[in-house]
Amino acid sequence: MKVDRRDDEFRAYVQDRRPALVRTATLLAAGDGHLAEDLVQIALTKLYVAWPRVRPMTRDAYLHRTLVHAVIDESRRRKRRPESLTDALPEHPAPAGPELADSRIRDALAALPPRMRAAVVLVHWMDLDAETAAAALGCRAGTVKSQASRGVAKLRELLEPHFLPAGGPR
């Protein structure tokens, strides 16, 4: 019954980590809750397959790295296969998370390239240090620092006009 024990361990891990993972995925997906759910499912599926090989101490890092890769893969896939628009509205609007209630913030995050957005989210939202974020992104800590710095500068540039007083800076 080794498989049952493995499934129980995985189930407990997912129940503990899933809410935070969905919040992170929502930020990485620039507020698209449906895409975030898909990304979390992809990452958890890959973790389940690799579960016996992934050490308990590195499971979170493995999951973050898989999630970032899923975001990047999805952005590439969407470029090749754009969504088709319809004139029929859904019955109920999708609820916005409290962290991304302002559509300007979602739009600004969406304007960042996926890896830059991932660096900003991992460093500034999840409060990971550069080395841990670098392990999740599969790059060097210096790259994470520069991507996060450029990302924050771009966000400021995009958001500044919305938050300045009506008369401009004084």
Rank of each mutant, 00 (worst) to 15 (best):
P95W: 08
M126I: 07
T45M: 15
L35A: 11
P95D: 10
E37M: 04
E131W: 08
P56W: 03
A141T: 10
V68D: 01
K79D: 12
L109A: 02
D102I: 14
V54G: 05
A134P: 04
Q41P: 09
P93Y: 07
A133M: 08
L122G: 01
R76Q: 10
T143W: 08
R81M: 10
V152Q: 02
V68S: 00
S75K: 05
D87C: 11
I105V: 15
D107Y: 05
P52E: 08
P90E: 11
G33S: 01
R59T: 11
E99P: 05
A136C: 15
S103C: 13
A153P: 01
T58N: 13
A133D: 04
H64K: 08
M116C: 10
R81N: 13
L47E: 09
A108T: 01
A36C: 14
T86D: 10
A108H: 03
V40W: 00
A70S: 03
A119P: 02
D102A: 14
S146A: 14
Q147P: 11
W125I: 06
R115S: 07
S149C: 06
T132H: 02
T132M: 01
D107N: 09
T45L: 13
G31L: 05
L89T: 06
S103K: 13
A141G: 09
A148T: 07
A134C: 07
H34L: 13
R106W: 06
H69S: 13
A133K: 02
V49E: 15
E37R: 02
R106T: 09
A36V: 09
P90A: 12
R55M: 09
V68H: 00
P114S: 03
C139H: 06
W125P: 00
S146G: 12
A43H: 01
D60Y: 12
R80F: 05
Y48W: 15
L122N: 00
K46A: 13
A130I: 04
D60H: 11
A94V: 15
D60K: 09
L85E: 10
V123R: 04
L100V: 11
R76P: 02
M57A: 15
E131V: 09
A36M: 11
A148D: 04
V144R: 03
R65H: 15
A101P: 08
R115C: 05
G142L: 12
A118S: 13
H34E: 14
L137A: 03
S149I: 01
L44H: 11
L44W: 07
L35I: 11
S75W: 01
R81H: 15
D102G: 14
A130K: 03
R117H: 15
G31Q: 09
R106G: 00
S84P: 02
A101M: 10
L155P: 04
T45W: 14
E83Y: 05
K46G: 13
E99Q: 14
V71T: 02
L89S: 09
G97W: 00
V121M: 07
P56Y: 03
A101D: 13
S75D: 07
P95H: 13
K46R: 15
H34M: 12
L63E: 01
V121R: 03
D127K: 08
A141P: 06
A88S: 14
E131R: 13
H69K: 15
L39M: 08
M116L: 10
L100C: 10
V54P: 03
V144L: 04
A153Y: 06
R55Q: 11
D87V: 12
Y62R: 06
T132C: 04
A101N: 14
R115Q: 09
